[in-house]
Design a protein around this nucleic acid. Structure first.
Lengths: 340, 340
DNA sequence: GGTTCGAATCGAAGCGGTTCGACAGATTCG
DNA sequence: CGAATCTGTCGAACCGCTTCGATTCGAACC
């Protein structure tokens, strides 16, 4: 394998000169620079990553720490992942994908071995164990998800409070007065899936302001359970005219549940979900929904992380970036049917 | 950060002795070994990955090269990915996830920089450009997907020929005599998505043997197009009593298409898909289906790759491992309705 | 016309591991 | 009992790259 010594020899200069010619960190005569560049091209020289890391203490690799649970909607994770790997590459970084269940162990192992320049954490929970480990580690980090205490790191998430309010407001202004919110399974919340209750609490508070009846239930994450859950809650609240779904599995199951009950949207019932347009089109989820903005969040997190790695961001101030929710209207929202 | 010199000093030995004590490559007295191990524990020593890579020419990292297309079912990719990262970690390897659209460029860059010990290629097509690059690179590779010429690499895939035959056989023995096969979009095939026509050709051949009418169509990968496609093909072949779906989006769209037409499975029409159980349960795909075995294939590929990295597998013989298709029966297969 | 300065280049050291050869001391063997 | 062998340890070299002085040379300055 060709190394910088080969390049230097081919260009007729010393190794250090070859290095400077490529990095531009010292002035090099145009003639020499061109010789070096030609040698690089002809020999197909690409620096040895390990050697460079050893010399510079930089690897140009970031770690992406995922957390995958059976009872959460794993496929949605891929959208975050792709946003992150793609943006990282654009900025000159490769991505180490870490999916170990022992997130804390993985974090310290990878940090101490200096394999990466920084961390992106996915699916961060309310009081995420990984945060403490993160703070004792030299590399910077960016989170996707909002923990209770985001001090010392940058956090990026959808504004779930605003999302809860937006859902309720939209149905309220369309004339609905009784609605059902279906959240993720309860143990997602217990595990610290803060976004679930951030949305639910905000929705509840806003419903109260408007004088709206809002029934809140937790739904399963898989068929056939979630289908039964939906049937049960529709039975329990026959007067509800709106359905808010903060649960992708519920959105996937709903069409056939509605068909079986002889209901259609939006004439009989209005529906607002929360998932991406990509998902809606792939999985036949024909409901208006708040986009989860996975790609955008991933990209923002990486950009911030990279600017920290390059010491471009102020070291002691950290951002919490909550992006505003938007409804993609697919026609499942309308005035409630007239009462009789 | 603590290095092996610190450990050696704490244990009162030389650096080389500390190294040997940890690697076990030379005999070391029990007393010294214990001192070194204690020092490691107390100091929290973890070797510097770059330095180790430089010295050993091994990184304990593998690269996972994905290819993601808008018109393929991206979320399914996550199942392969998780199988691979998890198994790799069990075997002591971390995984670099590479999603660049320029797969060949990424491959040569990463190979030449010696960042990884081997490659897993996902979504390998009939005449995959990356294969040529792969053969000129020192690291071994394992493929998920079957190219026309798998020489020099190990390939793992579902046996799509057998899958095509299995679908047809199953409906045939249940009494069906006319059926429709819905494949992935045509440009997936043109791009080299060999699995599409491997299944289709085998199904066609088997149908011919049985004297069955098999109509083959390519379907879109997203709503609302795929819904229209399904409607059109059902209109075109009103006598067909079986539907074979080698297209996940079609499976997702089918329930509402059938509901609209007033059809139900399996009494009016039998359906066999091809996707994982996990998908069926998450996305409400209530059809019997051949499991795509993503997790298993990913794990197999990694195991083989790691044994090559460790030079345990014979260097000049390579395997093609096609795993046998199995139908998960979810009750969408039955005898066709009586003719009238 | 000697000093000063800047441009261009080189040699050597260092990053943190692993590994080869040497060696001292204890054991075994003929 | 001297020679051969084994055990356990050490020092030095090396992996490939970056970077810090040091050096040379020509131009600018007074």
């Amino acid at each position: 394998m060709v190394n910088i010594g080969d390049v230097a020899r081919a260009a007729g200069v010393s190794r250090s000169t070859a290095s400077y010619a490529l990095s531009g960190k010292r002035t090099i005569s145009p003639a020499v620079r061109q010789n070096v560049e030609r040698a690089v091209r002809e020999l197909g020289y690409i620096p040895n990553a390990g050697a460079r890391a050893l010399a510079t203490s930089r690897t140009d690799v970031i770690a992406l720490l995922g957390q995958f649970f059976d009872d959460e909607f794993a496929p949605a994770m891929l959208q975050y992942i792709l946003g992150i790997t793609d943006r990282a590459r654009e900025l000159g970084f490769d991505t180490l994908l870490v999916t170990e269940s022992d997130g804390v162990g993985a974090l310290t192992r990878i940090a101490s071995s200096r394999m990466v320049d920084g961390f992106v954490l996915l699916n961060v929970s309310e009081s995420d164990e990984r945060l403490a480990a993160l703070r004792s580690v030299p590399q910077p980090a960016a989170l996707v998800g909002l923990p209770a205490d985001p001090r010392g790191v940058d956090a990026f998430d959808l504004d779930f409070d605003a999302a809860g309010r937006l859902m309720v407001d939209r149905l309220h202004e369309t004339g609905h007065r009784e609605m059902i919110l279906v959240s993720q399974p309860e143990h997602v919340v217990e595990r610290g899936g803060a976004y679930v209750w951030r949305l639910a609490d905000a929705a509840r508070a806003r419903a109260k302001e408007h004088g709206i009846r809002l029934h809140h239930v937790f739904g399963s994450s898989h068929q056939p359970d979630i289908g039964r859950d939906l049937d049960a809650v529709l039975d329990a609240h026959p007067a509800a005219t709106g359905l808010l779904l903060n649960n992708e599995a519920a959105a996937a199951a709903l069409p056939s549940v509605l068909a079986t009950r002889g209901l259609s949207t939006p004439s009989d019932i209005s529906v607002i979900g929360r998932y991406s347009d990509e998902f809606a089109r792939t999985f036949s989820l024909p409901f208006s929904a708040i986009d989860s903005a996975a790609d955008l969040l991933g990209r923002r997190a990486v950009e911030r992380l990279v600017s920290r790695v390059r010491s471009e961001a102020p070291a002691h101030s950290h951002v919490v970036d909550l992006i505003a929710p938007l409804i993609d209207d697919r026609g499942s929202i309308a005035a409630p049917p007239p009462r009789h």
